[in-house]
Write a protein that binds this DNA or RNA. Structure first.
Lengths: 202, 202
DNA sequence: GATAAGATAGTAATCGATTACTATCTTTTT
DNA sequence: AAAAAGATAGTAATCGATTACTATCTTATC
């Protein structure tokens, strides 16, 4: 149990705020998360939030930076030391799914940011994140083709698109079922089909 | 050019409202569509909307009914008369993608509805739609296995999940690129990988 | 068939509620 | 005692919804 303290240093308070938003997004529509709800969830008054963030958008920016940093670190860690490109892709997939299962609000926040018409700072962060994610996938797929694990005729871009879309599909199913745990259960089964679609014929 | 008329019968006005919402959702975040924006887009005052719909949620309900009706009709039509289950799945995929390309706001509205925490009427409609969609996919996949087109070892549920997720992934890519046309271009390439993942080895 | 009467559809103004954000005062920490 | 962090109590803007009133269309009556 975390001992409850009222006064926190600014950087810690910002960190707690980000965690509060990520948690809230797991159980409610990200676009409906108000500053009052954030404050309430972390036992703070609404006005106090603006001691640490100039605007609400700055809160979202911090949240998306947190997501980008954690997610990329996690998939890099998962792929580290794995020789086989296909096995590395599987490790990335599973670690990504694990991340999503731990923080089910994350993909919903990301999708919500991408929907925004204006080009905001948090939206740009999400775009950069997915771009970097895509670069890693591209590299692995190329390596997989080179070493013969993946079909030489494979469409690299389409394979990367399908990789990310597969996770998005899992999220959608969990929203439908209202059950986050389902993601962990479905992920290996869905990835098996994806893998069959990209690897070279034996 | 449609001749502009001020007074419309109630049912026509409701139909025009639904079309206005679908159009607006194609270019802006569905959750940020206000009743004022809807009215403005159809050259009407905001208050007049409530002569035809009791609440804003009733508008969303009508929109989602429109979507469910059109989408199911379109995929049923696409699959009609096709003997091969795999070819029928491809036809459904492509007609669904074509529908999305024509109405890019549709999948975003659907995803947005699913995100809502409360069990609203429009949310239920989306859930029913995807359930019926899933039933059709299940049937086709079973038939495909029976006739030997699809791998006998295929996980039916996972294949259905991946089918819908694949389209969701295409939508996400188009949001990233800010380019709807991209969906038409990517769809056949992505489906090719999916198909390779589910069909029986030659 | 003209016209009165009612029904239907739309306007403009406004309401209460909610939102992000701010100014001022108080408490805690160092 | 100074500075940082939080509480309290606001503000202005926006949203969905309602209201009183007007315009138009439909129908029944003579």
């Amino acid at each position: 149990m975390n001992t409850y303290v009222k006064h926190l240093p600014a950087d810690e308070r910002r960190a707690v705020t980000v965690e509060a938003v990520v948690e809230l997004a797991g159980s409610q529509n990200p676009s409906e998360i108000t500053t009052a709800a954030i404050a309430k969830h972390m036992n703070l008054t609404q006005g106090a939030l603006f001691r640490h963030f100039p605007t609400k958008d700055a809160i979202w920016q911090a949240v998306m930076e947190w997501v980008a940093e954690r997610l990329l670190a996690r998939i890099d860690c998962a792929a580290q030391g794995i020789e086989s490109p296909l096995a590395a892709m599987q490790a990335i997939f599973m670690s990504h799914v694990e991340f999503v299962a731990e923080h089910p609000g994350v993909p919903r926040m990301m999708f919500g940011e991408l929907q925004r018409a204006e080009q905001t700072a948090p939206k740009r962060i999400v775009q950069t994140l997915i771009q970097r994610y895509g670069e890693r996938l591209h590299r692995l797929i190329q390596e997989g083709k080179a070493c013969g694990e993946l079909s030489a005729a494979l469409d690299t871009e389409a394979a990367a698109t399908l990789f990310i879309g597969t996770i998005q599909g899992l999220v959608m199913q969990s929203l439908l079922a209202g059950n986050v745990e389902r993601i962990r259960h479905d992920a290996p089964r869905v990835f098996a089909i994806y893998q069959r679609g990209i690897r070279s014929a034996q």
